[in-house]
Design a binder for these strands. Sequence first.
DNA 1: CCGCACACGTGAGGC
DNA 2: TGCCTCACGTGTGCG
Lengths: 237, 237
Amino acid sequence: MYSKKCTPPSCSPSSYSSSHEEALVVIPCPSQQGSSSQCGEAAAAALSVEEARATANLRIHRQAERRRRERINGHLSTLRRLIPGTTKMDKASLLARVIDHVKDLTRKASDIGKGLMVPSEANEVRVECDGEDNLLIKASVCCEDRPDLFSDLIQAFRALKLTVIEAEIVCVGGRVKNVFILCSRRDGEGSVCLSSLRESMKEALDKIACSGEASGVGYSGKRLRALQQQQYSCYDS
Amino acid sequence: MYSKKCTPPSCSPSSYSSSHEEALVVIPCPSQQGSSSQCGEAAAAALSVEEARATANLRIHRQAERRRRERINGHLSTLRRLIPGTTKMDKASLLARVIDHVKDLTRKASDIGKGLMVPSEANEVRVECDGEDNLLIKASVCCEDRPDLFSDLIQAFRALKLTVIEAEIVCVGGRVKNVFILCSRRDGEGSVCLSSLRESMKEALDKIACSGEASGVGYSGKRLRALQQQQYSCYDS
DNA sequence: CCGCACACGTGAGGC
DNA sequence: TGCCTCACGTGTGCG
């Protein structure tokens, strides 16, 4: 029940067989070929041939194990190649980072599939620092849409010295969800400074999200019903 | 100054087969301690103490190596836990699937950040079967927007006996991108049937996407410029 | 019996 | 020098 047909044949790290090659020489014992007449010798011969077979098996086993090791290490270095910054890293630590990476990507992927990309009913502002290098910041704002919302957000980011790397906009029935990937370009960067940045960001974005709340309302029930009936529309009335 | 020449490396590994707990008892051998009065013994004692230290080092090395192995295998089983369907799978194959998973998730994740969620200039219809169970189908349609586009799509899915699990709509400057997660509820399901389903889906969606092409055009350059200047808007003129 | 996969202990090399 | 990581060969259990 294991291994299936996978066995990527190309996983070999290309440098192979140069270092130690198993010589095919098998029989070091010359003792037992002439002696067919003595029974004691026969026993010895049997034992030695048995030994020879054992060593042959051992040899096969040895190189099989080596192939297995090469397969595993090949996959491991493929992983190293895939995940940036893991070159010349400990094998165990590499696996740890692979785990982190998988978890992270799974979370991201589930975000897109689930409800993240459909603007929710309630206003929502989230600011999270992505990854371990703390360079990228992800900010998402979900609120009622209005003509100058986007430029307001951009201005807020500019005031905080944040560069927009990516922006993602989804609008459904008058509500909008904006997700930004930002990059903070500051001189004395530190985790302390970063947390305060988080706070000011959240404050500013909250203000922007709520500023259009007084004017137009009443979409809630209608929009929800529209969603449930699967009659999405991007068009305002 | 213990004698203890025991534990020669040749000593069979099964000798201390008591599961694996390293007993702290070090000195079982009382063999050559009686003669303390001879000077030749001094050299032997020095040699033996050196040997003893060597074996102690070996012991430390042994259990350190074991810890390392445990760490790696721990991470490996964590990965098994994370990726569904890899229980009791070969270690190398597990790594292969981890690689696939990482590649897949990276692609998906880059999709959300890059161009997937912004309607592209050219019309585009994609149908892909997600995951290994072949139950979920992801269909994305990118085309010029029109009032009844969505209901047309829904009708097409209904005709193909597809249930909409999730829908994601992004509209920018008159163009729209719809991404659907669908579930096929059919009796005799098979990969053959599924590929034909793919074909008919693609055909139907292509028809729908192109049907509004004749009427309104000319957004292209304007929209592209708007995107580059980061002046997104969900509002039609 | 053989192929396969795993865990183990040990030698070698890098700080 | 000591600790750590790695590769290697081998013993062992499973189909």
